[in-house]
Design a protein around this nucleic acid. Structure first.
Length: 269
DNA sequence: ATGCTAACCTGCGCGC
DNA sequence: TGCGCGCAGGTTAGCA
């Protein structure tokens, strides 16, 4: 579900309702997410939530005592409630603010996470992430260097958060289509020119998706409950055997690293 | 070091 | 209708 654009959309949706307010209570109905939710999250109780940031697919909520680190996994989404409502199935966590605004996490598959860290940037999960794809640090020189000698396919390489975080299964296929790069190409064999095209495609694809509010396939929805609309702009993802919008060739579906990849065998070489 | 695999968990759509 | 199967937006741990 949520890749960078969906997480970014979530952050933008929830921030106005939470920032500068005090956290009154964190109600964890089910601690068994990707990792057990630690009791240390309660260090944020009675603290002001000063800022919300995104790092890759992580959401970081900052308080003076430390930060809450959230991840939406495959199937998570967050919702803002302005008054108490009976929790539904898979509503695992509520964060209740001093004005009774509630942030509610729903995650059927429980691959998401809620953790606490005094210094989130030093947390093992965040410390080794690659540069943000929409930042200057994610550029041709950087990516070309990281791909040098890599035997792995370029699809798998750009889905590696230690190289660049935030690019998941949808946007990997979409970015490669826009770059005209075959997803099976060994990462280390791409020319510098093609790497530069890929860098720009990753950035533009993510930006367009953010503008559309993300992609809603199954469970993803924004904090106000509305879906994202980027699905209508997907060029290859989920389009197995359908015609390529550019050349009418049939879109191919292959499996790479246990994940579905979609591409146009004629446009992407 | 690098790269592959299984594993975590629930729901849904499809074919029979 | 119901059942079993395959598949789904992520990521780490563990092993070769």
């Amino acid at each position: 579900m949520p890749e960078l654009p969906e997480v970014e959309t979530t952050c933008r949706g929830i921030s106005p309702y939470l920032i500068k307010k005090n956290i009154q209570k964190i109600e964890v109905r089910n601690h068994q997410l990707r990792w057990p939710v630690p009791t240390t999250v309660n260090k944020c109780i009675n603290q002001q939530l000063t800022d919300i940031q995104r790092r890759g697919k992580y959401i970081i909520m900052e308080c003076e005592a430390g930060s809450l680190i959230w991840h939406l996994g495959m199937s998570g989404h967050m919702r803002i409630l302005n008054k108490e409502k009976t929790p539904n199935k898979h509503d695992h966590v509520d964060m209740i603010m001093n004005d009774q605004t509630i942030l509610r996490l729903n995650d059927p598959r429980k691959f998401g996470a809620l953790l606490f860290a005094k210094e989130p940037k030093l947390h093992p999960l965040l410390a080794n992430l690659g540069p943000e794809p929409l930042s200057e640090q994610f550029n041709t020189a950087y990516l070309y260097q990281r791909l040098t000698n890599k035997q792995q396919s370029i699809k798998q390489a750009i889905m590696d958060s230690h190289i660049v975080p935030g690019v998941g299964n949808i946007y990997a296929s979409e970015s490669l289509f826009r770059s005209k790069i075959n997803p099976k190409t060994k990462a280390g064999r791409l020319s510098k020119i093609r790497v530069s095209i890929l860098v720009e495609s990753v950035k533009s694809t993510l930006k367009l998706a953010i503008e559309a509010g993300g992609t809603s396939l199954r469970d993803f929805s924004q904090a106000d409950g509305k879906p994202g609309y980027f699905k209508q702009q997907l060029m290859v993802y989920g389009r197995k055997d359908q015609q390529c919008y550019q050349c009418n060739q049939q879109i191919k579906h292959i499996i790479q690293g246990q994940r579905a990849t979609y591409y146009c065998p004629k446009c992407q070489t």
